[in-house]
Design a protein around this nucleic acid. Structure first.
Length: 827
RNA sequence: GCGGAUGUGGCGGAACUGGCAGACGCGCUGGCCUUAGGAGCCAGUGGUUUUACCGUGGGGGUUCAAAUCCCUCCAUCCGCACCA
């Protein structure tokens, strides 16, 4: 038997799969379609084995579904615009276009070397004009619907990346990419009105029952729906009214002051006549300039200032002071808060600090609260007190009653607010799709007409970030004609957030080369929603929320006929090395290239899949890779076992038992893949099957399996292994003469073969081994025939030597007999 | 603070609706083979004071029977966080 030459085998089959067009799909053929999608990567650096996990899982699913007879579409592309590529380009002094191109070449080679295959005819690259033309088209559609707009707002600014960031790209007050503290800047920026879709984005999460619960919860929390009441407070000695939002309207009678956010637009007007005006404005400016993180860090130490003005709480006619404080956020609710110190911890701390009254209006049903003795706010629900006609009501009832009363009296009304804010999509950076808008002195903001797309990103631009878009220095780009009046106009110089690019790429794969439309609606409707989406949890909020939003917008505009893009989502865990996530900076990156050279792609694939449940993080071990390699050699050597097997004869028991194991394995592997991608246990089952062959040979002798038997087992083993380790499976299959159906030397690909089916009648032996317990403790195992009556089972157990010893001198009080499973005797 | 997850040998991890804990792999031990072994094969491998007992983060409970169900506590990780 020749040795396992993985390198030759893998190169041969990778070449052949491409020649055969194994992964090529005609989208017009929609019979039994299966759209298997991996999140497309940033082409920013070489892939490591952690990245590989994602592609390998996807490849397993694709190949498995293929063997189940489905038409499988698996495309791949490149999320090629954006800061990672640009920053890397700056560092290497290369134009991002070139570094991106080089990285794509490298990554494509790496994917190929893993044996991970795609329909490369559908490759999309988001930084190329034939793609970003349609990203710009998406922008225009949102603009048309009033969903893209420009406004001046306090926005997150990363001083290192020199650009604004979306709320979603700020983690712990720092830039998600470079970890620099994010500042607040008031700038005019482009936004997408995702908040219009907040409710639908929450509601439709219920439809996504094949998504991980964790991701759905994260999205729900991020959107952050709160139900409550908006209450109007007229400003005393003024015709103005301040509205505030509360979720605890039952505490309204305990409101002893009101607080505004420093960014509240009415502040200047309200304090215009105040003698303290300058001092107040100084405070306001100070708070406004603080970064989010600074505000959070000083959370314990709340600061505020009295405005000198009062507002009227109309439910009781009470005049309460109006303050400004750093703990109120302008972005949430209305930027004004009714403060109830007795029942809100923040208000309580603030009131204590500034000597504002604390009045209990919700009593603890368990123990009466004395306002004077409180050390912290009572935030639970309870019984109303000091609340006029609502006294004695329970909080939940009171909320309804008070809200109703307010609506009747015109004091306020029920309202829903969301934490979700509009998506800031403009970036002051070079490497992105230009926003297709021009500014005309006479017409204002004018969208670039569809027939003039794409707005090309100019190439000869110094792209180092300066804080303003580098495109301002490209005069040929900036100067243009107004599409509306033809007069002189200038182009928008900001580019779009890369998350816009990635929010629709899964549609483009269906019609990647169309040049008059972004995609063909009919084809897209046939192929989407995506049957299986696979990627990292890090996109649980950003990318997955944006994609859902854009899909809904396109659905409303009737460009697509579905309102959720991804039917089933799988988020794989990270690969850890030495206790940390693999990263260049930590120096714990395991490169696949040398491993593949040493052991072969199949070994690396097998180990990656065997390492643990794919949805969980897993620690990489180079030793474990050797174990996978050892197993594949044992599989390979089965070809030698087949050669040596006698043409007839053999041991009947060995044969039966092996075939039974084979059918059990087929059942187990099929269930593990279909259910929830339990590849690790599927592989261990195949290992058991292979071990059984060798165990039989060593126990019963070399000739115990006749050729036919080994042939059947090996053929099925190859089929079961094919999705995981496609090259060796294909080679074994080929050496055994291709498909049995063809009966020829044509060497039909194993992936054109049907996934093996198990025979129900072959799963179980005539005899079963039944564990026997006494008082729940295992005392014996007895082999007995199936289908026995309870009485008969009891007889057999009672005659067992071991059990006899245990029962001697004791009285069996109760027999629990589960036929063919277990016997427990209580003594 | 809120939300979510996880906790099983020396290690990665198995265990379906409660029913033989530790499958499979790594590592380790011993043996065979070999000029040699970072190759291959075979056997063993949770712990202990080994007729038996103890063992799934700790404590308690339900049950004939608990890694699995209930209560409680602890630890670690992840996400969100002054959200009114």
């Amino acid at each position: 038997m020749e040795p396992y030459k993985f390198s030759d085998i893998e190169k041969k089959w990778q070449k052949r799969w491409r020649e055969q067009g194994l992964f090529k799909v005609d989208v017009k053929n929609i019979s039994d379609k299966y759209y298997c999608l991996m999140m497309f990567p940033y082409p920013s650096a070489a892939l490591h084995v952690g990245h590989g996990r994602n592609y390998i899982i996807g490849d397993v699913v694709a190949r498995y579904k293929m063997m189940r007879g489905l038409t499988v579409l698996t495309p791949m592309g490149w999320d090629a615009f954006g800061l990672p590529a640009e920053n890397a380009a700056i560092k290497n002094g290369l134009h991002p276009k070139e570094s991106t191109r080089d990285n794509i070449t490298m990554m494509k080679r790496q994917m190929g070397s893993w044996g991970v295959e795609y329909d490369w005819d559908r490759e999309v690259t988001s930084c190329l004009p034939d793609y970003y033309k349609w990203t710009q088209w998406i922008f225009l559609k949102l603009f048309e619907k009033g969903l893209a707009y420009r406004k001046k707002a306090f926005v997150n600014w990363c001083p290192s990346c020199n650009t604004v960031l979306a709320n979603e790209q700020v983690t712990d007050g720092s830039c998600e990419r470079c970890d620099t503290r994010v500042e607040q800047k008031e700038l005019e920026q482009w936004f997408f009105r995702i908040t219009d879709y907040a409710q639908r984005l929450i509601d439709d999460l219920d439809k996504l029952d094949e998504w991980p619960e964790k991701v759905r919860i994260m999205q729900r929390n991020w959107i952050g729906r709160s139900q409550g009441v908006d209450i109007d407070f007229p400003v005393a000695d003024s015709d103005r009214t301040l509205t505030c939002f509360t979720t605890r309207v039952d505490t309204i009678y305990g409101c002893t002051y009101m607080v505004l956010a420093a960014e509240h637009p009415m502040i200047e007007e309200l304090i215009a006549d105040s003698p303290e005006k300058d001092r107040i404005m100084e405070f306001v400016r100070e708070v406004r300039s603080e970064s989010r993180i600074e505000r959070v860090q000083t959370a314990g130490e709340k600061r505020g200032l009295f405005t000198g003005r009062y507002v009227i709480n109309r439910i009781n006619g009470r005049k309460i002071p109006l303050w400004i404080a750093d703990y109120v956020l302008m972005e949430y609710g209305t930027g004004a808060v009714m403060a109830v110190p007795a029942h809100d911890q923040r208000d309580f701390e603030f009131a204590k600090k500034y000597g504002l009254p604390v009045e209990v209006v919700i009593d603890d049903p368990a123990e009466h609260i004395d306002a004077g003795k409180m050390t912290e706010a009572y935030e639970d629900e309870g019984i109303l007190t000091g609340s006029a006609q609502f006294d004695g009501m329970k909080s939940p009832d009171a909320m309804g009653a008070i809200a109703g009363h307010m609506e009747k009296e015109g004091i306020g009304g029920r309202a829903v607010h969301y934490k979700l804010r509009d998506w800031l999509i403009s970036r002051q950076r070079y490497w992105g799709a230009p926003i297709p808008v021009v500014y005309c002195d006479s017409c204002g903001i004018v969208p670039v007409p569809e027939d003039r797309l794409p707005v090309f990103l100019p190439e000869g631009v110094e792209f180092r970030p300066t804080g303003e878009s580098p495109l301002k220095d490209a005069p040929d780009f900036v100067k243009t004609d107004c599409p509306s009046c033809g007069g002189p106009a200038r182009r928008e110089i900001d580019t779009m957030d890369t998350f816009v690019d990635s929010s629709w790429y899964f549609l483009r794969y269906i019609s990647p080369r169309l040049d008059d439309r972004p995609f063909d609606t009919e084809d897209v409707n046939n192929w989407l929603p995506v049957d299986q989406y696979i990627g990292g949890v890090e996109h649980a909020i950003l990318h997955l929320l944006y994609s859902r939003f854009i899909t809904k917008v396109l659905y409303d505009a009737r460009y697509v006929g579905f309102d959720e893009p991804f039917k089933r989502l799988f988020t794989q865990g990270m690969i850890i090395k030495n206790g940390a996530k693999m990263s260049k900076s930590k120096g714990n990156v395991v490169s696949p290239d040398s491993l593949i050279e040493k052991y072969g792609a199949d070994t690396v694939r097998l180990y990656t899949l065997f390492i643990g449940p794919p949805e969980k993080d897993a620690e990489w071990s180079d030793r474990g890779v050797e174990g996978a390699y050892r197993f594949l050699k044992r599989v390979w050597n089965l070809l030698g076992v087949l050669d040596a097997a006698p043409g007839s004869g053999g041991d009947e028991d060995a044969r039966k038992s092996l075939l039974r194991k084979m059918h059990q394995t087929i059942k187990k592997v099929t269930g593990d893949i279909d259910g929830s991608f339990h590849f690790n246990t599927a592989i261990s089952a195949i290992m058991e099957l292979v071990n059984r062959v060798y165990a039989g040979l060593s126990e019963k002798g070399e000739g115990c399996y006749e050729k036919k038997c080994i042939e059947e087992v090996l053929r099925n083993t190859a089929l079961l292994l094919a999705p995981f380790v496609p090259h060796i499976a294909e080679e074994i299959h080929g050496r055994m003469g291709g498909t049995p159906e063809s009966g020829s030397e044509t060497k039909t690909s194993i992936f054109k073969c049907t996934w093996p089916a198990f025979r129900e009648d072959m799963l179980e032996a005539d005899m079963v081994t039944v564990p026997v317990q006494i008082n729940g403790k295992l005392r014996s195992t007895i082999e007995m025939p199936r289908n026995l009556e309870q009485k008969k089972i009891q007889e057999i157990v009672e005659s067992d030597e071991k059990i006899k010893v245990w029962l001697a001198g004791k009285e069996a009080r109760k027999w629990i007999i589960l036929p063919e499973k277990l016997v427990n005797i209580v003594v």
